[in-house]
Nucleic acid binder design. Sequence first.
DNA 1: GGCTAAGCGAGACGGTACGTCCCGTCTTAGG
DNA 2: CCTAAGACGGGACGTACCGTCTCGCTTAGCC
Lengths: 202, 202, 202, 202
Amino acid sequence: MSSTKARAIAATGRPRDDAAQHAILQATAELLEEVGFDKLTIEGIAARAGVAKTTIYRWWQNKGTLALDAFLTAVSPKLAFAETDAPLADLRAQVHRVGKLYRGKTGRVLCEIIALAQADPTTREQLLEGYVLPRRLAAKACLERAVVQGALRPDIDIDTVLDAIYGPIWYRMILQHQPIEAHFIDGLLDLALQGIARPAKR
Amino acid sequence: MSSTKARAIAATGRPRDDAAQHAILQATAELLEEVGFDKLTIEGIAARAGVAKTTIYRWWQNKGTLALDAFLTAVSPKLAFAETDAPLADLRAQVHRVGKLYRGKTGRVLCEIIALAQADPTTREQLLEGYVLPRRLAAKACLERAVVQGALRPDIDIDTVLDAIYGPIWYRMILQHQPIEAHFIDGLLDLALQGIARPAKR
Amino acid sequence: MSSTKARAIAATGRPRDDAAQHAILQATAELLEEVGFDKLTIEGIAARAGVAKTTIYRWWQNKGTLALDAFLTAVSPKLAFAETDAPLADLRAQVHRVGKLYRGKTGRVLCEIIALAQADPTTREQLLEGYVLPRRLAAKACLERAVVQGALRPDIDIDTVLDAIYGPIWYRMILQHQPIEAHFIDGLLDLALQGIARPAKR
Amino acid sequence: MSSTKARAIAATGRPRDDAAQHAILQATAELLEEVGFDKLTIEGIAARAGVAKTTIYRWWQNKGTLALDAFLTAVSPKLAFAETDAPLADLRAQVHRVGKLYRGKTGRVLCEIIALAQADPTTREQLLEGYVLPRRLAAKACLERAVVQGALRPDIDIDTVLDAIYGPIWYRMILQHQPIEAHFIDGLLDLALQGIARPAKR
DNA sequence: GGCTAAGCGAGACGGTACGTCCCGTCTTAGG
DNA sequence: CCTAAGACGGGACGTACCGTCTCGCTTAGCC
C-alpha cells in the first residue's frame, strides 16, 4: 500500500501483477492471524500466495513492512473519529472502539507488529507515521475542540493527556495483566479528565 | 534466577556449577547491552561465557527466558520503593527512577523483551510474574498508604490508577514518539492525581 | 570378558559388581539386535542396563570393545570344529554351520562389528585375536590333518585355501548380493578342494 | 553421479551450479584420503569446498551417499576389463589391478564405505548397484568368453566362481590378517580356475 | 568398629557435529 | 520489465551423544 504507491509506474515491460500483490497481502494477513508474526516467514507467505520470493522482495523490503502494510489495509478504516459538537463524547466513543478492537485478534496482531518494530526501526517509523500519528492528530483536534468549547482547562499539555488515555490501553493490551473492559476505559477517561485528588473541602 | 529456583535440587550427581551460571548471566547482560536482544544468540553467549551451548540449554529453555533472567538480575534492584511517611513522594521518586531507566539502554532492552513476550507466552508470564507484578504490588501498597493517610480519595480503583501512571511511560518507551522527560513524568503524575477537569464551582 | 580378565584384581575396595557387568553385556547384545551397531549409544546401553555411564567407561574403553565383548560371549561357543578321522568332512560340517549362522541375525551383528572395526583399530585387533584367528587355527589344524592323511596335496598354501573358503562367505554376508545357501557352500568347497585334492593314483 | 542423474531436471529456476557439485565431490575425495570416512564431516566438506552445508544436503541425503559418489567418480575408471582374445589373461590382469588398488588407500576408503553400508541400506544398495554389480557383469562376460573359447568347463556356476575370486580379496582387505600380495592373487586364481579348467584332451 | 579404598549412581560439564529452517541474493526461462 | 522457480552462501537453531568430571553413597577387607 504505502510502499507501493511510492513506486513510479514503469513506462515499459511487463506490468505489475496486481493479483500477485493482493494475494501476498491476503496471505500475510491470514498467516499473521494463524501463526503470529514471530513464526511468519517470507517463504511461507510466498508459498501460501503462490508467488515467488523475489516478487515479495521486489515490493517490500522486509517482512515488517509487509506485515504492517497488511495490517493497515485491514484495520485503518475502523478507527475514525466522529465529529459532533460534543467532542468529549466523540473521544469517549472512539476510545471505546479502540478498546474493543484491541481486546481481540486485532490487538494480538498489533502487539506483534509492535514487537517487530522494536527490532526494526523502519517498521517502527512506518507504524508511527502510518498508524499512530494520524490517529493522534485526530484525537488532538478533538481535544482542542473541547478546549475551545470550554470543557477543558486551556493550559493542559495535550500530548501528555493523549498518552495518559491511550498509553494505559496499550499497556494492558501488551502485558495482558488485566482485561481491557469498558469499565476500565470509562475509569481511565474519568481519571484523566477529572483527577482523583480529593477535593479539599472548605 | 526465577527459572533456577523452580528446579528441584537433585539429591545426587555432580552439583551445578554456579560459576558457569553466573558467567552465562553476565555474558547475556553484556551482550544485551552491546547488540540488543534481536542480535543476541545463544552461540554468542556460550562463546563469551566460555561455556558449552548445552549448559545453557540445560538451564534455560530459550533465549527469552535467559535474557529475561539476566535482565531481572541486573535491573530489579534499581527500582525499589522508598518507604517514608510521604507515600506520594515515594511514588513520585520511584516513577522518576523508572522514567530515567526506561529512557536509556535498559529501556531498549526491556522493549525487546516485551517484543519477545508477544510471541512467547512463557516469556510473557515470566515478565509479568518476575518483573511487573512485584513492582505493581509495591506501588499498590504505596498508594494504599496514601489513602490511609487521607491524601487520596478512598474510592479510587488502584489498578486503573497504576495503569494510568505506568502505562503512558511504557507507551512512550515502546513507540518513542515523544521522549520520557522528567517534565512529562511530573505532568503525568499531576494528571493522574489531580485531573484536568476545570473545577466547576468557584 | 577378555578386557576384564586383563584387569588386576584390586586387593581392597568395593568389589566389582558382576550383576552390573552382566546387565551391560545383556543390554548391549539386545540393543545390537534391535537398533544395530550404528545407532548403539553408550547412553542408551547405560539407560537400558540401569547403570551409570561411568561404570561402562570404567571397564570398556569404547563401544567397540564392548559390543565385541558382547558378541563373542554370545557366539563363540557355536563354531567349534569336530575332530573325527575324516577331517575334510569335519571342515565341510563346520563351514556349513558358519554359513547357517552368518545367514541370520548373527551375521548382521557380525557385519556391524566388522563395520566398526574399520574405524577403530583396537576393535579390529580384538576381532582378529578374539574371533577370527582362533577359528582359523582350528581350521588350519583340520586341513593339516587332511594333508597328513594324504587327502590333500602337501604343497598347498593353507592360508590361501582358508581365505578361498571363508572369504566368499563373508563376501556374501557383507554385500548380500546373493544368499548364503547350502548349495553355494558345497560348490565353494568343491571348487576350493578340487584343485588341491591329491590326484587319485592311477 | 548416480544420485544426481536420478533427479529430474527442473524446467525452470536457477540451474544447478556444476562447479559447486564438482568442488564438493573433489573435497570429499580429498578428505576421504586424508582423514578417512569416519572423521569425515559434512561441515568439513562444506568448508573445504567453499560451499554451504545446505547445498550439500540439497543433493545428497547423507554423507554416505556423498562419499560413495565421490569414491565411484574417482575409482570406477581404474577397474575396467581389457577385451583381448585371451579372456582368462584379461581376468587375471584385472584382478591384479583390483588387488593393487585395495592394498592401498583406496582399499581403506572402500572398507569404510562397506562399513557404512552395514548400517545404511541405501548406501548398501548404491554400493551394489553402482560399484559391485557393474564390475561383476563385466567379469561374468569375461568368463563366458572363456567358456565359449573352450578354456573353461561349460557347467560351472559363474556366480560362485566370481565370489571365489573376489571374496577372498575383500576378506583380506577387510580383516587385514594377511597382505594382498600379487603372489596371493595368483594362488587364488590358480585355485579357482584349476578345478574348473576343461581337462586338456589327451 | 573405625579406616581406607574402590565401585557405583547420578548427572553437570565442555565439546562436536548434526540436519533443519529461513534468510536475502542470484540466475535462469518465459510472458 | 515482471514473474515463477529454485539454487546458492550463510547463520543460528536446538538436539544427540560424546567422554570427563565431581559428587555422595555403598560395600568390602584390614587393622
